[in-house]
Design a protein around this nucleic acid. Structure first.
Length: 270
DNA sequence: ACGAGCGCCTGTCGGC
DNA sequence: TGCCGACAGGCGCTCG
């Protein structure tokens, strides 16, 4: 489910609900949720620490504690819920943190792909990520140069978190449509001008996604509004808003890929 | 270096 | 109605 805008939306909410509270106890309900440390050490290490900041890096939720950093990746079906202590645990809850303010945090994760790390060295987890697409550090020229360094299909490249950190399947399809670029276009053939347009498109769809509190397609992630503004994702066989021809769907790198064959050029350069 | 295929999981949907 | 395969907001691994 969550890509950068959804994680950002969750992080902003958590920031108002978590900061300053102490972790009184913890329950690990699905051992493989935790990458590190070993389940036996986790409880002992985290209990007693207080939450100082909540941030996002790419699709990771980064929670700074008194001593360690708790990092959570929601993967396909994860969500973070804050509930009153009296509220019952849900079926898909995998990790529970009981807080000092009478609430508990639940890491819900239907498909069990989500992961958590408790570590004194967050860089061990986050260190290899590519640039943050909405930061000032990420410029159009930087994108152009990085595109030249690979000879790869543009869509899988944008999904590669070491190339650019935070894009997922929905926002990548939307950005490529906005930029008029075919999903299979080769990265090294993209001209400087096209890279600028792609850069602007990436920032636009992500900013708009955040402004709309993310995309809510089904019951897994609620509260978002961006699904009402999607141009291609989930619109197979429906008319392109620009040219009226049906949106096509194909598989690219094992991911469903939506595009307009007329507005998004060909597989070559554009 | 690159791309295809698979595994990890649970749930939903469409076709027969 | 029931069964069965395809597919789903992600990512890490192997193999040519």
């Amino acid at each position: 489910m969550p890509e950068l805008p959804e994680v950002e939306t969750i992080v902003r909410r958590l920031r108002t609900e978590l900061i300053g509270h102490k972790i009184e106890s913890a329950d690990l309900l699905w051992d493989r949720t935790l990458v590190t440390p070993k389940p036996a050490h986790f409880k002992k290490n985290i209990v007693g620490q207080s939450i100082s900041t909540v941030d996002r890096r790419a699709k990771y939720i980064v929670i700074s504690l008194s001593v360690d950093t708790l990092i959570i990746h929601l993967r396909m079906s994860g969500d973070i819920l804050i509930r009153e202590e009296s509220a019952p645990i849900h079926k898909h809850d995998r990790l529970i943190l009981h807080l000092s303010d009478g609430h508990y945090l639940a890491f819900s994760n239907m498909r069990k792909f989500g992961r958590a790390w408790l570590t004194p060295n967050p860089d061990d987890v986050l260190g290899k990520l590519g640039p943050e697409p909405l930061s000032d550090h990420f410029t159009a020229e930087m994108l152009y140069e990085r595109l030249q360094q690979h000879k790869r299909q543009i869509k899988p490249l944008l999904l590669d978190q070491n190339f650019l950190a935070g894009m997922g399947n929905i926002y990548t399809d939307e950005a490529l449509y906005l930029a008029g670029l075919h999903p299979l276009a080769k990265s090294d053939l993209i001209k400087r001008k096209q890279a600028q347009i792609l850069w602007r498109s990436i920032r636009k769809v992500l900013e708009e996604g955040i402004r709309r509190n993310g995309t809510s397609i089904d019951w897994i992630y609620r509260g978002g509004d961006f699904q009402n503004y999607l141009q291609v994702y989930g619109r197979k066989d429906e008319p392109c808003f620009k040219c009226g021809r049906p949106i096509q769907k194909m598989m690219v790198g094992q991911r469903g890929t939506h595009f307009c064959p007329r507005c998004q050029g060909n597989e070559g350069a554009d």
